[in-house]
Design a protein around this nucleic acid. Structure first.
Lengths: 274, 274
DNA sequence: TTGCTCCTCACGTCACGTGAGGTGGC
DNA sequence: TTGCTCCTCACGTCACGTGAGGTGGC
C-alpha cells in the first residue's frame, strides 16, 4: 500500500500552496496519484514529492510552466539538460540586463544627459550587402549580433570591399509594435552574391538629422529622445524609417562603453543640394 | 507654440510601444499633453519625453506601475529617493534569491539528497518568550529576522535566562495558503514581561518526528519532503502545527551554510512515556 | 483619393489568488 | 457531532498584447 497524502499534507511536504497544487493539476503538470471519484479529493503519493520539488525550483528561477512540463517529459537526460541550460542562459542574460538598467537608471536620475551635438546630413544612395528580416524587440540582441557577424563573414569570403561602417534601417512598426522589419547593411564597393540571408540591396538617399549616441544600446532611447525633441521643436520631421550607423560597434570592441551609434531621423531637405 | 508629437512619433522618441502608451494613458500614469476632442487623437509634448524615459527605466527594473506613479508624484526629492532606494533594495534581494535558487537547482539535479537521520522525540511543555503574528510568505525573511532580534534583545534587557535554542510554531495555513500564524519563541527559565510584540507563552508538549536540515532555508523544503515521506510511509501523522528549532541560525552566524534547523512533524506517541 | 495612422472595445495571456457556496472525513 | 479540510466555479490581478471594426489626417 503506497503511502498517500491529502493535498494539505502534500502542501506542507513540498511548500507549494494548495491553490498552486490545484493549478498544476488543472494544467496536467502534476496530477495527483489518485482522485476519489465521489468526493474529488486529491491524493498524492510520497514519490511525487521530488517532482514537486523540482517544479518549485524551476519556478523559483521563473521558468514558465509549459517549459517545466517539457523538462519533466524530456525523453532523455541530454534533452533535459539542454532545456535547463537554455533557461539558465536566459536567466543570466536577464541579470545582466537588470544590472545595466540599474546603472542606466542612476545615470538618468543624476541629471540631464550632456547636450549632444545635432547635425544635418545628406545621406547619398548606397549600394549595400544587407540582411532584412522581421524581428521582435525580445529577440533583437542575438539577432543583431548574428546578422552583423554573417554580413561581415560573407563580405570577407567574397572579397568585397566595404565603404563605410555597418548600419540599420528600422521600420516605424518596430518601435510602435515592438516588432517590425529591420535591415542590417554594410555599404559595399561592389555587388554581393546572395548567400544565406545576405543579399544586395540599394538604399535611397535621405536627409537626416543625426546624433551620435555614446555607450551601450541599453541607453539609446535617451539619444532618441534628444533627437526627437530637436526634430519636433523645429517641425522638421517627415515620414520614413529611422537609420542607425554603428560607427564603433560590437565588431570593433566588446567594451560597450566605447560604442558610438549614429541615429538618423528623416527630415525635410533643408540645406543646398550638393 | 509647444512642439507636439503624434503617438507614433512619441513611440519612436521613447521606445515605448503604442499599446503601452495607451495603457499608461488609461492608468493616468502618462497623460498626453493634448487630446483632440473630435478624433481622440493623442498629442504628446517633447517635454514629456524625459518622463517617459524615467518610466521606461523603472519598468526595466520591474517596478510596478503604481509605484512608478508614486515616484513621479513624490512631493520632494527625499521622498522620491526613498521610494527608489526601497525598490532597488528589493531588486537586490531578488537577485540574491535567484542565485540561491540556481545553486539549489543544481544541487537538486545532481542527485538525491544525502539521507538525513530521522528521530522521534518527546518535546516537553515549554515556557517561552514569544512573538505571534500572522505573516505572508512574501514577508517572511525580514519578519523572521526582526522577530528573532526583538526576542533576543528583550530577554537580554530583562535578564531572563534562555534554556534552549529559539524555535517557531507554524500553523498549517501558512503552508497551504502561504499566509498564516507564526510563533517565534525562545524557551525561558522565568517569565517575561510583555514588551513590544514579546509576550510570555507556554507551548504544549508534543511528540515529534524530527530531521535536522543543514544550510540555507532556501533548501528547507527538501528536508520537509524527506520528513513527510517518512511520516507518511509509516502512517504516523497527526494534526498539529509543525515546529522548527534553530539549532544554529542567524543569531549565531551569518554563514547560511552553517545553519542547522530542526524540523518537527507531529506524530502519534510511539515511545514509552518518560 | 489612397493607404497609413490612429481610435475604441472586448478579450487573451501568465501564474496563480480571492472568495462564494457547498460538501466530505475524522 | 463539530469544525476543519477539501471541492468547484467564477472572477480578479498585473502589464500589457491581440485583433476586430472603424475613422481621421496628410
Amino acid at each position: 500500500m503506497p503511502s498517500s497524502l491529502a493535498i494539505g499534507d502534500f502542501s506542507r511536504a513540498t511548500h507549494l500552496s494548495v491553490k498552486t497544487l490545484r493549478h498544476y493539476h488543472r494544467l496536467g503538470l502534476l496530477t495527483p496519484a489518485e482522485i476519489d471519484p465521489d468526493s474529488s479529493y486529491r491524493r498524492y503519493s510520497a514519490e511525487q514529492i521530488p517532482t514537486a520539488q523540482v517544479i518549485r525550483r524551476f519556478r523559483d528561477v521563473d521558468m514558465p510552466l509549459d517549459q517545466i512540463g517539457a523538462v519533466l517529459d524530456a525523453p532523455d537526460v541530454d534533452a533535459r539538460n539542454a532545456l535547463i541550460a537554455e533557461h539558465l542562459a536566459r536567466l543570466e542574460e536577464g541579470l545582466v540586463q537588470t544590472q545595466e538598467a540599474v546603472a542606466s537608471l542612476r545615470g538618468l536620475l543624476q541629471g540631464p544627459s550632456p547636450a549632444l551635438p545635432m547635425e544635418h546630413r545628406s545621406e547619398p544612395a548606397l549600394q549595400t550587402a544587407a540582411i532584412n528580416e522581421t524581428v521582435s524587440l525580445d529577440d533583437l540582441g542575438p539577432w543583431f549580433q548574428g546578422a552583423l557577424g554573417e554580413l561581415a563573414a560573407t563580405l570577407v569570403a567574397q572579397g568585397v570591399t566595404t565603404t563605410g561602417p555597418p548600419g540599420a534601417v528600422i521600420a516605424d512598426d518596430f518601435f510602435a509594435q515592438e516588432r517590425g522589419a529591420l535591415t542590417i547593411f554594410v555599404p559595399s564597393a561592389g555587388p554581393v552574391r546572395a548567400v544565406g540571408r545576405v543579399e544586395a540591396r540599394s538604399l535611397p538617399a535621405v536627409e537626416l538629422a543625426t546624433i551620435v549616441h555614446a555607450g551601450s544600446h541599453a541607453d539609446v532611447d535617451r539619444s532618441y529622445g534628444a533627437l526627437a525633441t530637436y526634430v519636433s521643436d523645429r517641425a522638421l520631421g517627415v515620414d520614413g524609417p529611422i537609420r542607425e550607423r554603428y560607427l564603433v560597434g560590437p565588431l570593433d570592441t566588446a567594451d560597450e562603453g566605447e560604442w558610438r551609434t549614429e541615429i538618423g531621423w528623416p527630415i525635410f531637405q533643408t540645406g543646398p543640394v550638393a
